[in-house]
Design a protein around this nucleic acid. Structure first.
Lengths: 342, 342
DNA sequence: CGCAATCATCGAACCGGTTCAACGATCAGG
DNA sequence: CCTGATCGTTGAACCGGTTCGATGATTGCG
């Protein structure tokens, strides 16, 4: 494999001249520049990444820490990952995907060794043990997800509170009076998944203000538990006419349950979910939903991260906490409740 | 950030001694070793990845090229990716995930620049333009998927031919005489996705031998096209009593279609799919299926790749083409056909 | 015509590791 | 007491880039 020394020799110049000719960081005569470029082309020269990283203290690689827990729905995470990798590449960065269970160790490894120029964290917990490590790291970091303490990091997330209110308001306007909200499994809450109670608490509060009955329950993440849960709930609350779903696995499982029970959507039951359009297409979900925009969030996080990586000025700017406001995609799965419909 | 020079100074030894004490590649007195380790601990020393890569010509990173085409079912790919990243980490490697559309450019970039010690390729096409590049690269490579020309690379894939025969045999034994096989979209075939026709041709051949009628058709990958297709097929071939599905998107969409049509599985229709157990759980699929073992394939590919990376002897061994033999997971979705059941 | 400014190029140092050849100290054997 | 082997340690070179300060050639101006 050709080094810059080979290119220089081939072009009959010094290594430094070859470097400048290729980078354009100093004026080089047209004649010499041509020779160097020709030599580089002829030798199929590609800079050695390790050497360049050592010299410039830049790797052009971003770290992406994503964890695949049993009780989180893997296909939903994929969207975030693609949002990150695609945007990173557009900006000239490759992505180191780290799925290690021990996130703290992994984070320390990739930052201390300077394998990456910056880090994106996913699956953020309320008290996330990785955050102190990331704050202390020499590289900037960005989060997809809202932790308890946002200081020192850029944070991007869906506005789950507003999402909860939008869901409740929507069904309230249609005349519903008793609703069921299915969240993620309780275990996700115990692990500190704030997006669960952020949506839930806001929905409960709004329901209280409006005088609605809202049954807020924890969900499941796998079959057959999900199916059992749904059937149990629909049996337990026969007067409920609206279903709010903040749980991808439950949303994915609902169609077959309603078919089996012979319930029509929205005739017998109005449904609103919270997931992405891609997810809806993948799982053939016919419900109206709050767009969770995972690709947009991943993309925003990367853009901000790269800004900080590439500009000293940007590194000094105050940290941002940016919420995407929930937009309801109407797929016609909600309607006014029919009296005694169930 | 502490360098090995800092550690050496702190321990009162030379840089080379510190290096040897940490790596254990030369005998070092107990006393000095203790001092060096203590200094490294105290300074929280972590070797600089770029410097180490430059010196050792090893990065401890593997490249993973995965493409997310519109007409391939993204959630199915995730399993392979996790199989690769998890196994890689177990063996001490991180994973550079590259989803770039231009795979040839991406491959050249990560191999020529020596960012990675080895490469795993997914979405292998019959005539895959990336293969010549990978063969010429200084790093070893492994494929998940079977190309037309396997030379110079280790190849791992499901035995799709045998999978096709197992499916047909199974339904034949139960007494079925007319079957439908739904493959991937035709566009996947045009792109060179050999796994489509490998299963299909073997199934057709076996059906011919057994005197069965097998309608082999291309599928779709997104809703609502998938649903339309399924309804169309079940209408078009009312005498068919068995359905073979080599297409994750179709499998995922089938339950709601049969519910809607009021057809019972296996009472009215026997069904066999080809996907993974994880996929079945994620999508609540109640069908018997050929296990495609994506995590096992990813894991095997990584193990072989790392063997070649780490041992000069292994690098000289002949290349392997290894097929996982299809195993039928019986979920009770097949039964003898009822006469005139449809 | 001489001096200063400008320009393109070069040599050397540096980034932070690893590794080789050589060195001095210790010890055993003759 | 001298020699040779053994052991632990060291200085220097190297990996392949980037970058700084210096150099010599050219040009412009008075």
């Amino acid at each position: 494999m050709a080094t810059i020394g080979d290119v220089a020799r081939e072009a009959g110049v010094s290594r430094s001249t070859a470097s400048y000719a290729l980078s354009g960081k100093r004026p080089i005569s047209e004649e010499v520049r041509r020779r160097v470029l020709a030599a580089a082309e002829a030798l199929a020269y590609t800079p050695n990444a390790g050497a360049r990283a050592l010299a410039t203290a830049q790797t052009k690689v971003l770290g992406l820490l994503a964890q695949f827990h049993e009780d989180e729905f893997a296909p939903a995470m994929l969207q975030y990952i693609l949002g990150v990798t695609n945007t990173a590449r557009d900006l000239g960065y490759d992505t180191l995907l780290v799925t290690e269970a021990d996130g703290e160790r992994a984070l320390r490894r990739i930052t201390d060794s300077r394998m990456v120029d910056g880090v994106i964290l996913m699956n953020i917990a309320q008290e996330d043990a990785r955050l102190p490590i990331l704050r202390a790291a020499p590289q900037p970091g960005a989060l997809v997800g809202l932790p308890g303490d946002c200081s020192g990091l850029d944070v991007f997330d869906l506005d789950f509170e507003e999402a909860g209110r939008v869901m409740v308001d929507h069904l309230h306007r249609l005349g519903h009076r008793e609703l069921i909200l299915i969240s993620h499994p309780e275990h996700v809450v115990e692990r500190g998944g704030a997006y669960v109670w952020r949506l839930r608490d806001a929905a409960l509060e709004r329901a209280r203000q409006l005088g609605l009955t809202l049954h807020a329950v924890y969900g499941e993440s796998r079959q057959p538990a999900v199916g059992r849960l749904l059937n149990g709930l629909l049996d337990a609350y026969p007067a409920a006419t609206g279903l709010l779903i903040n749980n991808e696995a439950v949303a994915a499982a609902l169609p077959s349950v309603t078919y089996q029970r012979g319930q029509r959507v929205p005739g017998d039951l109005s449904v609103i979910g919270r997931y992405s359009a891609d997810f809806a297409a993948t799982f053939s979900l016919p419900y109206s939903f709050i767009e969770s925009a995972p690709d947009r969030l991943g993309s925003m996080a990367v853009r901000q991260l790269v800004r900080r990586v590439e500009s000293t000025a940007a590194r000094k700017e105050p940290f941002v906490v940016r919420f995407i406001s929930p937009e309801l995609a109407d797929r016609g799965s909600t309607a006014p409740p029919r009296p005694h419909s169930r």
